[in-house]
Write a protein that binds this DNA or RNA. Structure first.
Length: 590
RNA sequence: GGGGGUGUAGCUCAGUUGGUUAGAGCGCUGGCCUGUCACGCCAGAGGCCGCGGGUUCGAGUCCCGUCACUCCCGCCA
């Protein structure tokens, strides 16, 4: 007999009755009746009830062993009597009569309760992550993640993609987020960077003549965390394809993503994934990652307020402001409207005007100043009914869109208008190539400097830079940005020109992107790709509100690994070897 | 860097308008219990109420500061 186990804790059923077996695992729960004690033994696979009574030699030690101790139990599988069958357990028709009980590893008093469905505090969970991960839901989430990644690999290979590995120690690149740097021992004063994504490598893979690449790629960005953004590192399904247009990328990716969501979730994934131009998304949803489950849209009512009796808005419009209207279904009460107004103030806006529609008339100060006719125009445009409200964001276009967008989400949530049983996907397309920095007025790349401008060189030469669109797209699901991609700019002259518009001369391109700009001189295939976030996909499928729930050993919000105690101090000798010296930590002012 | 929320037993949380000895469930220790499966019953241990200061006759509760965790803004090609 194997020294640890002949079966797992899920394997024993009525078929095994009469067999002498050995199982090992953790004591999940104990029910001590004095002369009779039950143990639920748990392993990765399931639970098996084991039982001993006072006549058994091991009875005392069974009673005395604490929860979560690891034990090996040897004994006979016995059928439970009819009245003691537990139908909620797959192994509930049998139990193991304990003949021998060996403690492999005794557990101290636990810092968190493993057999509870209730989460402990984040700090405790992360510090004792190995205990947290024994619990049902975290354990299942990690298994789900593994299965999803497995499925993605199979689907990608089926579609003719090949998985390659790209370097982890690479060069810092000027664009994007803050880099993690690694001092280069052999090159005093120089640093490697961890890749923010294998962006340049995957393009070079295409130049190398491989046709369809993918990788479950680790990406490193030194950015502050959010609920849907793990600090430091995350994984992307990174992929790139040669000789493709935008729609080819969509056609390759859509079945993979849809397939995975449909395989692992019961939620409806929609018939077709809509394409929404960036500008339309900003107008209707106030952001570039719309939650299409919210059943109403924002509309522009600037013209109705222009030169109107509502002078605050009218004056702002003259100065370039716009007015965006957010419908508030069933929000037609003073209390709700006031709450929205103070919410908006909390968001940094001066407030939110509103009109309440009820009993056939428009009410509130805005309606009064505007007059019944214009209030009715708004009602018709927005599609409001009796009992609804309409809220207004008046500001310069970006700020108005943003506030209206946040208000839309808040109303959707507060009024319970979000259908939790569906995934609503959308491709956001036609991103602008350039944008103007509000503070400096400088024109810069709005998304990815390697994207091909729509219209190519011609567009760069002839058009107002701010009007040029890029072959740049995002995949969005339920208000979460799942993915970002582009058809790349593989033409050196077009690349120089694009960087020139953004204020960088040819030398900058040559210095900062030597690999790409050189490679493109030796025959580069037109290519494009995308990189869906693995963690976010798993988070959506697992229906978890926080990305840490689908990561084995996540860091906390301050990018610390509480379990491993990282980051940590290092010896001076290690620093000396790396030619690195500590700078004094600046004292806090005040 | 900024804003919100939270911080009370090992864990999850309650704690009234400021008022006597700060509670519950789980866990832990001891006792009872031979059919439980969130077993039950009895008893017990366990608290710098995050920390520091202030107001007050009196602070878990009010005020100021600070720290930690968390959510959001900034940031995220």
């Amino acid at each position: 007999m194997h020294i640890y186990r002949t079966h797992t804790c899920a394997a024993l059923t009525e078929a095994a009755v009469g067999e002498k077996v050995r199982i090992s695992g953790w004591i999940n729960r104990k029910r001590d009746h004095g002369q009779l004690v039950f143990i639920d033994l748990r392993d990765h696979y399931g639970l098996t009830q084991c039982v001993a009574d006072s006549s058994d030699a091991s009875f005392a030690i069974v009673e005395a062993t604490r929860l979560e101790s690891v034990v090996t139990i040897t004994g006979e599988v016995v059928r439970r009597s009819e009245d003691t069958i537990n139908t909620s357990l797959p192994t509930g028709h049998i139990e193991v009569r304990i003949e021998n009980f060996e403690v492999q590893s005794a557990a101290d008093t636990l810092p968190l309760q493993v057999n509870s469905d209730e989460d402990s505090g984040e700090e405790t969970r992360l510090r004792y992550r190995y205990l947290d991960l024994r619990r049902g839901r975290p354990h299942a989430n990690i298994m789900l993640r593994a299965q999803i990644i497995q499925s993605i690999r199979a689907r990608m290979v089926d579609q003719g993609f090949t998985e390659f590995q790209t370097p982890i120690l690479t060069a810092s690149s000027p664009e994007g987020a803050r880099d993690f740097l690694v001092p280069a021992r052999l090159h005093p004063g120089k640093f490697y960077a961890l890749p923010q994504a294998p962006q340049q490598f995957k393009q070079l893979i295409m130049v190398s003549g491989f046709d369809r690449y993918f990788q479950i790629a680790p990406c490193f960005r030194d950015e502050d965390s959010r609920a849907d953004r793990s600090p430091g590192e995350f994984y992307q399904l990174d992929l790139e394809m040669s000789f493709v247009e935008q729609q080819d990328v969509f056609d390759a990716v859509e079945p993979v993503i849809r397939g995975v969501f449909e395989e692992f979730s019961d939620k409806d994934c929609g018939k077709e994934w809509v394409h929404i131009p960036f500008a339309e998304s900003m107008l209707k949803y106030g952001n570039d990652k719309p939650d299409l489950r919210i059943p109403f849209e924002i509309s522009d009512v600037t013209d109705i307020f222009r030169d109107s009796g509502f002078s605050i808005f009218a004056k702002n419009i003259e100065k370039g402001a716009v007015v965006r209207a957010v419908p508030g279904p069933k929000c037609g009460s003073r209390a709700i409207a006031d709450r929205m107004n103070s919410w908006a103030q909390g968001e940094g806006a001066p407030g939110m005007g509103y009109i309440i529609y009820g009993e056939g008339e428009a009410r509130g100060p805005v309606a009064k100043a505007l007059g019944a006719e214009k209030a009715e125009d708004i009602r018709l445009q927005v599609g409001a009914e009796d009992g609804d409200a309409v809220f207004f964001a008046c500001a310069e276009p970006d700020a108005a869109a943003s506030l209206a967008g946040r208000a839309r989400v808040k109303i959707g949530q507060d009024q319970n208008l979000i259908d939790e049983r569906v995934f609503r996907f959308a491709w956001i397309v036609d991103f602008p190539m350039f944008e103007k920095d509000e503070v400096t007025g400088k024109i810069d790349f709005s998304h990815n400097p390697f994207s091909m401008p729509q219209g190519g060189m011609q567009a760069l030469q002839d058009m107002d830079p701010l009007d040029i669109k890029a072959w740049q797209y995002d995949l969005v699901c339920n208000g979460v940005e799942l993915s970002s991609g582009a058809i790349r700019n593989h033409l050196p002259e077009v690349m120089y020109k694009a960087f020139e518009i953004a204020g960088y001369d040819n030398k900058v391109v040559d210095d900062k992107f030597p690999a790409m700009i050189n490679a493109f001189r030796f025959g580069a295939p037109p290519h494009g790709g995308i990189a869906p976030g693995i963690d976010r996909m798993v988070m959506l499928i697992a229906d978890e509100p926080n990305i840490r729930e689908v990561i084995l050993f996540p860091m906390n919000g301050k990018a610390e690994d509480l379990m491993m105690a990282a980051p940590s101090d290092v010896d001076d000798s290690a620093l000396n070897e790396l030619h690195v010296r500590r700078a004094p930590v600046p004292k806090k002012s005040g």
